[in-house]
Amino acid sequence: MRRLLTVLGLSLFFVSTLARAEWTPDGPLHLQIGFGAGGSTDTLGRLIASEIEEQMGWEVIVENKPGGGGVAMFSGISQAPADGQTIGIGVNIPILMNLVLRGDKLPFNADSFDYLATVTVAPLAIVAKADAPYNDFRELVAWSKENDGALLGFDAKPQEMTIRAINANNEGQFKLVSYKSGAESVQGVLGGHVAAGYSGGAHIQYVNSGDLKVLAVATADRHGYSPDTMTLREQGFDYAVEPYFFLAAPRGLPDDTRDALVAALDAAIASDRVAEMVVNTMHAEPRNLGAEGTRSKLVEGVADIRTLIDAAEG
């Protein structure tokens, strides 16, 4: 009996792997990019597409669908047929912010997708000039109180929320200066226009050259280029922002389709070319959380952002 079950199990396993290996897109696979041509998401998306073409032999068509930090593209994806022919790549933060702030106006929610993979997380950190009189974020908070306020550069909503929460709950006296990108925020820090600023990778070359120092890591885990810098959480500020690049498809993909897509993406993200691009231009490392991990990042992310906004409104 046991032998029979084993045989049955084995054959089932083979049948299922065969079925999995057999799924290929019926026609070209459409990879939609939630941003315009140029920029990191576009470059990542195109690179992944060309890796999939090379490794799997599928035809992949890349389409830019810019608008609302990916909201326009994911709106389209959520309405597309769940046949595995259409997938999208975007960034989690703008999607989460929109779901929390304007969820009732969007045609989708966090459950509208089958999540496939993450590509990398941006190494978000708070940095200051190397010769600044504070060495970590706690000292900066104290400095801001002593000096009747400190200017802090940011470039995305959750960063603003975090600092407002710290103003409300930890007696920080920060004044927030809005920048268009992390690179411009770094420019503001280097030029001495703000006391400190958020950056999602642009700071690393200046940290290595000794022009900047990292006051706090703003993601959940410490960063490799500055292993001794504590995270905000470790310094007693219970906030973390994790900007992930992720891929998703319309909800309800057949199992074999989803598994094939997950496997193809995993191989593409693990490729040398993607790693090289992520390391060189985004100053991060590839990190694929897999289908389940991606899903929980997004679903839990909504709750985290909601907590953050409540904290910011103190």
Binding site: A37, G38, K180, S181, A183, E184, Q187, T281
Partner: peptide
Amino acid sequence: MIQGIQPGPL
């Protein structure tokens, strides 16, 4: 900008 490059002092 299409090439992902932001002109400026840096």
